[in-house]
């Protein structure tokens, strides 16, 4: 497995594809930080400085820029990184005739996918660590504020979360590369799933909630009705990793954000903590935020394990011959 992983890693870093990916990601990052920097500066100059005390640096990620927030950029483009690294992992080898060779060596089949998967994950981890470091550095220059220790801790948690998120897409792409014999088909299927989960599921959630929940007067909905609408669309959003990631990272990056009450119900937070959380509307500690994130994280991990298990099952049963 180590041999496969090292070879795949070398392949990743030496490939033109990786260079292009790097260029795209950094381009997006530059653009994002520029726009977000403007947004944060505006906020600060409007006298929100005291209000944002202790989390002004994190605003870089969540402040709505001219187009979208930096976080939204990452939610949208993170999957691309994972998919580009994985969509042809197995079927390319099948097509070039190296798969049967590798499988006729004394190794287990799961070592092949695991090796490829880990290589992709390490690549993602390195890429995102570099990206985040660059964003922080540019952010320092853009707004001239130094992040506090709490903010750094939150950023690190966010880094881990985004690696898991992109890792999910990597696993999904790997699965598609096992199922589809043609590289073009698996690339297209990956793109289709991306559109489905990023755009279709949230809209679907809205539509379904509106169909399910009775609203007496659409012009002037009651608070209870709004809550019900929100609850239904959230349940459906559970099926969408981008929605999960977006929710979880907003909680991590914005200390005032509590997510939904739903999250509280599922979380492992003690009653006292829940009481305090509801009682005091203020800045959360990172521990409290982490607890709030746990349901989203669990759902994301479930997706993660699910795709990997599926890949494994399909791959082990697959015939070797390409014809």
């Amino acid at each position: 497995m180590r041999t496969i992983m090292m070879k795949e890693l070398a392949d990743h870093f030496g490939s033109v594809r990786f260079m292009i990916l790097l260029a795209v990601v950094f381009m997006v990052a530059l653009l994002g930080i520029h726009l977000a920097g403007q947004g944060v500066r505006n906020l600060l100059s409007e006298g929100g400085g005291a209000y944002l005390e202790g989390r002004s640096f994190l605003m870089l990620f969540t402040a709505p820029g001219a187009l979208m927030s930096l976080l939204a950029f990452m939610t949208l483009f993170g999957p691309m990184v994972g998919m580009v690294l994985g969509f042809d992992a197995i079927n390319r080898e099948r097509n070039q005739g190296t798969l049967s060779k590798v499988l006729s060596q004394p190794i287990y089949r799961d070592e092949v996918i695991l090796g490829k998967y880990l290589a992709g994950l390490v690549t993602v981890a390195i890429l995102f660590t570099a990206l985040l470091a660059m964003l922080v550095g540019l952010g320092l220059m853009a707004i001239g504020l130094v992040p506090t220790a709490g903010e750094v801790a939150r950023l690190l948690a966010f880094l881990v979360l985004s690696i898991i998120y992109v890792g999910f897409w990597l696993g999904l792409a790997l699965f598609l590369s096992i199922v589809f014999r043609s590289v073009a088909t698996s690339a297209l299927a990956a793109a289709a799933l991306w559109v489905l989960m990023s755009f279709f599921v949230p809209v679907l959630g809205q539509a379904v909630s509106e169909a399910v929940v009775q609203v007496e007067d659409p012009q002037n909905p009651q608070a209870g009705e709004l809550a019900a609408l929100d609850r239904v669309s959230r349940v459906i959003a559970l099926a969408s990793p981008p929605a999960l990631f977006s929710e979880a990272s907003t909680i991590l990056l914005d200390p005032t954000h509590r997510g939904s009450k739903q999250a509280l119900r599922f979380s492992t937070m003690s009653r006292l903590d829940q009481f305090l959380l509801n009682r005091f509307q203020g800045v959360l500690s990172i521990n409290q935020s982490l607890v709030l994130v746990s349901p989203d994280l669990l759902a994301l991990l479930a997706f993660y394990v699910g795709t990997f298990l599926l890949s494994y099952l399909v791959f082990v049963r697959q015939e070797v011959r390409s014809a």
């Binding site: 041999t3 392949d11 490939s15 080898e93 070039q96 005739g97 190296t98 049967s100 060779k101 060596q105």
Partner: peptide, 26 residues
């Protein structure tokens, strides 16, 4: 086993291809 229409890793040299195969065999 040498499969019909077997492929080699085009981006690797002959030496690297062989080293990879040896690695897989431990």
């Amino acid at each position: 086993y040498m499969a019909e229409n077997m492929g080699v890793y085009a981006d690797l040299t002959a030496r690297e291809n062989l080293r990879f195969l040896a690695g897989l065999n431990g």
